[in-house]
C-alpha cells in the first residue's frame, strides 16, 4: 500500500503521468472515490500520457465506455445489473487492455487479482490517493 498527497491539478497530472509509464497491458486500474473527487481527471492524465496530449478524453458517464486503441475507460456509475458487464465489453477489455474503471464496485468480483485499486479521498485542501 502506498499513499500520495496531491495538492492541485498539476500535481495530479504529473503523478498520473509517471504512474501511466509503469503500466503494461493487460492491467486493470479501479478508481474509487466520490462524485467530482477527480477520478476522471486521473484517468484522463493516464490516457493522455499514453496516447498523446492532444487526445480528447470525454467523460464516459453517459456512454459507459470510451476506447483508445488498447486502453478502455469505463464508468460503471449507471450500471445496476451485473449481467450488463459482458454486453458493455468489460470482460474483453480486462483480458486485453489497460482498463480504467470508475465506480468499479459492481464489477468487484470480476476484477483480476493484480488489479491496482486507487482510492481518492479529500485530505485537508488536497487529494489523497491510497494505492493498493
Amino acid at each position: 500500500m502506498k499513499e500520495v498527497i496531491l495538492k492541485d491539478l498539476n500535481q495530479t497530472r504529473e503523478w498520473a503521468g509517471q504512474f501511466a509509464k509503469t503500466l503494461h497491458a493487460p492491467q486493470t486500474i479501479a478508481l474509487n472515490g466520490n462524485l467530482g473527487i477527480g477520478k476522471s481527471e486521473i484517468a484522463r492524465a493516464i490516457i493522455k500520457t499514453l496516447r498523446g496530449a492532444e487526445t480528447i478524453v470525454p467523460s464516459p458517464t453517459f456512454t459507459i465506455v470510451q476506447n483508445y486503441d488498447g486502453i478502455s475507460h469505463f464508468d460503471l456509475y449507471r450500471i445496476t445489473d451485473e449481467s450488463e458487464l459482458t454486453e458493455i465489453g468489460l470482460m474483453h477489455a480486462i483480458e486485453n487492455d489497460i482498463t480504467l474503471i470508475e465506480w468499479p464496485q459492481i464489477a468487484e468480483k470480476y476484477l483480476p487479482k493484480d488489479t491496482i485499486n486507487i482510492f481518492i479521498e479529500e485530505f485537508e485542501q488536497a487529494r489523497k490517493l491510497i494505492i493498493k
Binding site: 462524485l35 467530482g36 476522471s40 484522463r44 480528447i56 478524453v57 470525454p58 467523460s59 458517464t61 453517459f62
Partner: peptide, 18 residues
C-alpha cells in the same frame, strides 16, 4: 468545438444529484 471532459447535460444531472 467540443467538450474535453463532461457534457453540459451531465453537469446539470450531477449537480442536481448532489
Amino acid at each position: 468545438g467540443q467538450t474535453l471532459d463532461d457534457s453540459a447535460g451531465e453537469a446539470f444531472d450531477k449537480v442536481s444529484k448532489m
